[in-house]
Design a protein around this nucleic acid. Sequence first.
DNA 1: ATAAGATATGTCATTATTGATATATAGTCA
DNA 2: TGACTATATATCAATAATGACATATCTTAT
Lengths: 102, 102
Amino acid sequence: MKSAKRRRLEAKGWKFGTVQEFLNLSEEEAAYIELKLALSKSLQEARRKKNLTQHELARRLKSSQSRVAKMEAGDTSVSLDLLIRSLLALGASRKELSQIFS
Amino acid sequence: MKSAKRRRLEAKGWKFGTVQEFLNLSEEEAAYIELKLALSKSLQEARRKKNLTQHELARRLKSSQSRVAKMEAGDTSVSLDLLIRSLLALGASRKELSQIFS
DNA sequence: ATAAGATATGTCATTATTGATATATAGTCA
DNA sequence: TGACTATATATCAATAATGACATATCTTAT
C-alpha cells in the first residue's frame, strides 16, 4: 500500500498500523498452521511407508506413542521442531522437507 | 544396505543396529544443525533487506534484541519454531521457506 | 461378540525455550 | 578522544513443549 493512501485512511481515523498488524498476524498464523499440518501429514505418510506403528516410531524417537499420535494430529502442543526432527529421524532429506514446505 | 550383507556382518559380531542408530543420529543431528544455520542466515538477510535493526525486529516479534541476536547466531537455545515464525513475520512465503530448506 | 493391537485423548511432572535484563563489544561519527 | 547506536553474550524467572502414563476409542481377526 502506498503511503499517500495510508495517510488518507489515517486522516479518516483508521487505526492503520493496528489493522495491518492484525492482518499480518493472521496471515502468519495461518501459514504457521498450514505448515504444521503439512508436516503432520508427511510424518504419518513416512511412518506408514515404513510400516511402523506409532509405538515403534516413538521408540526410535525416544518419545511416546501418545506424542506421535499428537504429532500426526497436528496438536497445538506439538512444535515444528519436533515434527521436523521426527521426519529427519525417519530419513527425510532436506530436499524432501523442502517439498513439504512448498 | 541389503539384509544379506547385514546378516553376514551380524554373524561376525557387529552390533549392527547400534552402529546404524549412531550413524543415523549423527546424520539427523547434522541435518538439523544445517537447517538451523540456513534459517538463521535467511533471517538475518531478510531483516537487513528491510533495513530493520535487531531491536526493531524484536519489537515486531514481541521478543527482545538479545533473542534476535541469538536467532541470527543459530544459538542452541533457539528453536526452529521461533526461526520459522520469525521468517513468516517478516513476510516470507512458504515458497521462500521451501527454498531455504532445499 | 470379544480379544488383541493400534491409535486417540487427557493430565501432569520434568525439561527446554523464551523474553527480559544487564552488560560487553564492536562500529561510526563529531 | 568519547558519545552513540547496533550487535553479542550471560543469566534467569516465566512459560511452553515434552515424555510418561492412564484410559478411551477404533480396527480387525476369530
